[in-house]
Nucleic acid binder design. Structure first.
Length: 866
RNA sequence: GCCGAAGUGGCGGAACAGGCAGACGCGCGCGACUCAAAAUCGCGUUCCCUCGGGAGUGUGGGUUCGAUUCCCUCCUUCGGCACCA
């Protein structure tokens, strides 16, 4: 808090009208869980906490305008959260649907996808792994704004946050393609690789896909049913583990590939997710890693349709399969190979394949075969060469090989046979872009045009079109918890879900509930609360008993600060016009894919509903790092590693604590707490105090002393100003420390009676004011200046005073430091060169040799190259 | 696996449109004051050294007169995403 408070104070001194508000995002799981643990009513616990926090913040000297305080659990606040819900509902941006959702068994509530973290898919709050439940829940249509949320052009936000959001939204460009089942049902898929359509040798549906039942043949019914049941039982963690062995079942049904009429089997497998795309994929095992593993495991055909970019092919020659002289002729033809124990391992460039096939065919002994794989796929038999370019030719080749070699008799596909040869493995599968092969009229289309051309053709044929898919999901906002804003919906047997009219808001959260956990939503168990009347017909109806995710409350709180007690609208429009959008917003990086996406969504939705204006809610964002406990773990009461500012404040005073919080680590990086340095900052504050309050008789300072002092002063002012602008708070304090050291020197040289001294004290206190507001104010008064220092303008750098009149010229020989020479600031290049060469150290090192070259950086450095 | 950030003294950290590495502070050492200690003040504090210097910003290479800074390789730590078709 304090560094941003200091910056707000700095901006005020810069002449800005600064709104620096404070409020409490008071609803939510953490508060409710903490209250339950202590067996205190969540409301009592929350408001006691708020009071404690207010006290703490005030003791730190924050400049918050408390008249603008907003508390999201106050009815006068959540009335407007409910108003926003209604608006979203009326505009079709809030909807209710039954779906498998993430459920935290410990918090007894559903969670948004953003609130489920890590590999084990745990609850963001309590770290319990979540499970899936089928529930009817309320969602906000964040996906409507997926494309717009990717546009950061109006934002001065850190690259890091933009990247996190971009990845979270997860745009992929591709095409939708209309496959059909054998009996004529449409079976649409999404693919990013329309260029591989001719290699689609089977399809895979998510187990939950609606067509599964219809596709399943009677023979497969039992297996399919069992697999679907098992998939539903499994948690996401089990299902989504990437390294898991592929599982799946054949439905017995077939689909038709629209590009070539090929009849391909339809499988179900849990590696296809119902929640992404259409819940169905075309499988191109030759160019998709997952499909490849699946096909290999289940013996499904694999057909390469994209040439690898390097054009490399391979051939492995079994001992005894070639007539003698084979290796010699290869060598003579410039075809490189490795010979290991009579086995030949041959790697071919694109141009060598034809020549090689010819030679191999001539040298092949009867009863054997040889193959070329990679960029080209050919099987050389003694009676001719078979090209593997279709599912049919593969079948023929496989049959032939099985006849010739009993050891491959049980192989189900050619690829399975080849995969057994480790030498081949790196050329059998790839997912790069390349020239299309084995793809009918598209064969030969180069990799950089393939996707575009195929997509255009699909559209022409009416079987597909270009399409963009996002990973972002709609925001699940229902929570089966007590401590939140009630969702203002009433269910009427006649009229269904009806929004509570705005003039009847807020739907008050009752105090008299059983808030101790029962595994059920507390509002549901309240004897009377949920019973009400339908706003449409007046008949008996029941209220929605779920409450809203607190991220809903925090999505618009910046607007409530404008006018926290305004009772006609979420905010006073005049205030909105004056202040919005938020100019500077600071917060932790942990908000990147939650709060900061939600609030952007909220703003854009609000804009489209005619409530807010402009493209974005917050113009400039700067991330602060997290201060960890001394044990480098996140501070938490349960770990017992929390550093309470109160203790530090009572021991060192607020100003010292403020300054130390700015000084001890980089604000944007955060660090484990380390209290040992605070003594240094305390010493600094005391030394300022001593210097200004302990009288020292003025002496007779030299002009040099005064010039040096003023130079340091204005150089410091320049740096401090810059560092405030760029949020580099740690160097603000160190620059002030440096200047103080200089001031002590000047004092000892008798400077205290001078006008320069008065100037230094004046500016020094102004620079301190944002950092240590109390000490600065008191010393300001002591200097006899008018109240208050915090209303003073920020000082202006006197560039002339800040300029150096002497510079330290660095003299290097071959880039190594050899000497430093003091020269006047405006020195000419020629004089610089002379001064450097005249140096004793240089003369000694040169020892008579003549420099080959002299590099000159004016005003800084001379490098003599010998 | 993919994406991103970061590696500088005993510690927190400075410096980077390429130009004196280690500002400022902590800690530590020595000294002054003191009977003594604390506080305060002063000096010193990257490492090695034969006191001339030499090495040094995670590793190895490259570009350059010159690299903590730019490029490539690798290592480590942290964060995010992850069967997303």
């Amino acid at each position: 808090m304090t560094p941003s408070d200091a910056r707000a104070r700095y901006m005020r001194m810069r002449g800005f009208n600064v709104l620096f508000p404070m409020g409490f995002d008071a609803f939510g799981l953490p508060a409710e869980n903490a209250a339950i643990r202590r067996r205190i009513h969540p409301k009592d616990w929350t408001y006691a906490n708020i009071e404690r926090m207010r006290h703490q913040l005030k003791s730190m000297g924050a400049m918050f305008d408390w008249r603008r305080e907003a508390v999201s659990s106050d009815p006068e606040y959540y009335r407007w959260s409910q108003f926003y819900f209604n608006q979203l509902y009326h505009h079709g941006l809030a909807y209710r649907k039954m779906s498998p959702v993430d459920w935290c068994p410990n918090c007894n509530t559903t969670l948004a996808r953003e609130q489920v973290w890590g590999e084990d898919r745990h609850c963001e709050r309590c770290e319990t792994p979540v499970i899936k439940k089928d529930l009817e829940q309320w969602f906000f249509r964040t996906t409507n704004y997926a494309a717009e949320l990717l546009d950061f052009s109006n934002l001065d936000w850190p690259e890091r946050v933009r990247t996190l959001q971009t990845n979270w939204i997860g745009r992929s460009e591709g095409a939708s393609v209309a496959f059909t089942t054998e009996v004529g049902d449409a079976l649409e898929i999404f693919t990013t690789r329309p260029d591989t359509l001719w290699g689609a040798t089977f399809m895979v549906l998510a187990p939950e896909h609606p067509l599964v039942a219809k596709l399943t043949s009677p023979e497969q019914a039992q297996l399919v049913e069992a697999y679907v049941q098992q998939a539903l039982r499994q948690s996401d963690i089990q299902r989504e583990a990437a390294d898991k062995d592929k599982t799946g079942v054949f439905t017995g049904g077939y689909a038709i590939n629209p590009v070539n009429g090929q009849r391909i089997p339809v499988w179900i497998a849990d590696y296809v997710l119902m929640t992404y795309g259409t819940g169905a994929i075309m499988a191109v095992p030759a160019h998709d890693e997952r499909d490849f593993a699946f096909a290999l495991k289940f013996g499904l055909p694999i057909l390469p349709v994209i040439e690898p970019p390097d054009g490399r092919s391979k051939s492995y020659v079994v001992p005894g399969s070639m007539r003698s002289g084979f290796a010699d002729i290869l060598q003579a033809q410039g075809i490189s190979f490795e010979l290991v124990e009579d086995r030949l391992y041959i790697t071919l460039s694109a141009s060598q394949v034809a020549k090689y096939v010819d030679i191999a065919h001539r040298y092949l002994k009867p009863g054997y075969w040889n193959e070329v794989v990679g960029a080209q796929w050919m099987f050389i038999f003694d009676d001719g060469v078979q090209v593997w370019d279709s599912v049919e030719s593969e079948a023929r080749i496989l049959l032939r090989c099985r006849e010739l070699e009993p050891r491959v008799a049980d192989r189900r596909t050619v690829m399975e046979m080849l995969w057994n040869c480790p030498f081949y493995q790196d050329v059998l599968y790839h997912h790069e872009y390349g020239t299309m092969i084995h793809s009918g009229e598209f064969t030969g289309t180069p990799g950089d045009q393939a996707r575009l051309q195929v997509t255009a053709w699909l559209a022409e044929q009416g079987v597909g079109q270009g399409m963009v898919n996002y990973r972002l999901r709609d925001w699940l906002i229902s929570r089966q918890r007590y401590w939140g804003a009630p969702i203002p919906i009433v269910y009427c047997p006649e009229h269904g879900a009806v929004a509570v009219p705005d003039d009847q808001l807020p739907v008050l959260l009752p105090d008299d509930v059983e808030w101790l956990p029962t595994g059920e939503s507390p509002l549901k168990l309240h004897p009377t609360w949920k019973h009400t009347t339908c706003p449409v017909c007046g008949g008996p109806a029941v209220r929605e008993t779920d409450t809203m995710d607190t991220f809903m409350c925090s999505s618009w709180y910046h607007l409530r600060y404008l006018s926290p007690h305004y009772d006609r609208y979420p905010f006073d429009p005049q205030e909105y016009d004056y202040w919005m959008p938020v100019d500077t917003y600071t917060g932790g990086i942990e908000h990147a894919t939650m709060h900061l996406i939600y609030t952007r969504f909220f703003h854009k939705a609000g804009r489209d509903m005619g409530i807010m204006r402009g493209p974005e809610p917050m113009t400039q964002l700067r991330n602060q790092g997290i201060i960890l406990g001394e044990d480098s773990e996140k501070m938490s009461k349960s770990r017992g590693n929390v550093i309470a500012p109160d203790d530090l404040v009572s021991r060192y005073g607020a100003d010292t604590v403020r300054a130390y919080l700015m000084f001890f680590a980089r604000w944007d990086m955060g660090a484990p707490w380390n209290g040992s340095g605070i003594e240094g900052v305390a010493r600094w504050v005391r030394r300022v105090w001593t210097l200004m309050l302990e009288p020292v008789a003025p002496g007779d300072p030299s002009p040099d002393t005064l010039r040096t002092l003023r130079r340091k002063l204005h150089q410091t002012l320049r740096q401090v100003t810059h560092d405030f602008e760029t949020f580099e708070f740690n160097t603000i304090v160190s620059a002030l420390m440096e200047l103080l050291n200089e001031m002590y020197k000047a004092r000892d040289q008798g400077a205290t009676g001078s006008s320069a001294w008065a100037e230094v004290l004046d500016i020094y206190l102004r620079m301190m004011a944002p950092v240590t507001p109390h000490v600065a104010e008191e010393l300001w008064q002591h200097l006899g200046k008018s109240y208050s220092i915090h209303n003073q303008p920020w000082p202006i750098v006197d560039e002339e005073a800040a300029a150096e009149d002497q510079i330290t010229l660095v003299v290097q020989i071959n880039g190594k430091l050899r000497d430093r020479v003091m020269v006047p600031a405006g020195i000419s290049d020629e004089d610089t060169r002379q001064a450097a060469l005249a140096s004793d150290a240089v003369q000694k090192h040169l020892a008579g040799t003549v420099p080959r070259k002299v590099i000159l950086v004016p005003g800084k450095l001379v490098n003599i190259v010998v």
